[in-house]
Amino acid sequence: MKRIILLTLLCQIAAIASAIRPLKYHRENYRLHDFGIAIGAYLPKAMENDLDGFVMQMRMRYLLDKDDYYGGGGVPGMTINGYYLYSLNDRISVGATIGWNGMSKYELERYDFYKNSDNVWKFKGQAQAKINARAFHLMPTVRYTWFYNSALSLYSKGSIGVYYRYMGFDYSEHGQMIHAPQEDILLAYQVTPLGIDFSDGPVRYFMELGYGAAGIFKIGISCRLHRKWQNK
């Protein structure tokens, strides 16, 4: 039984190996322009925590109550990003990743009352505030392809760059308006130990598992422009 399993495995390995058609090294062959767009999910918690910290800071300062709501700012924990990579050879590609992070929006409010001379509570006024957050990242990227054939490639990627975050605070109290935005430029990174890219042709599909500003799980579509394909 063990021999049958071993033989089956060997046959499968041989079949996979025969399917691999490594490209011969020639600079013209690897001059690939690879660009794609992806949706990422599960952003590192620290990004949302920073926003929560800002919300708490504003709540403490202006004595506001929080009323979470989801608006047109995107789904928290999601990211949309695009990339461009230029293949230096059959293994290494360099380029950049640009992306937008979906972040929560918050609405804050306060209702003020006072006790009049008859010891009865009276409404004094309302204060309202909105916090809108936006975040973008731009990261130079290096990709190393460690397995490829005509239909499938497996790769790892690393990116490091900048992360721009805008948190806007708009506050109104009895006709008084305050606009106090906070802008930060932070270090952004993305480490992708495993990426799978498949399809036989210039339009390809890919999935990535990693960690960083672009999300833990990414799925997308890419286009590889190759001299060979361009000439078709």
């Binding site: 506001l64 109550d65 306060r110 003020d112 006790k115 509570w121």
Partner: peptide, 15 residues
């Protein structure tokens, strides 16, 4: 119980 609304502003009011 007759207090009209409970909220963060009570941090200042001390009622």
């Amino acid at each position: 119980a007759s207090i009209p609304k409970l909220g963060a502003y009570l941090r200042k009011q001390h009622v």
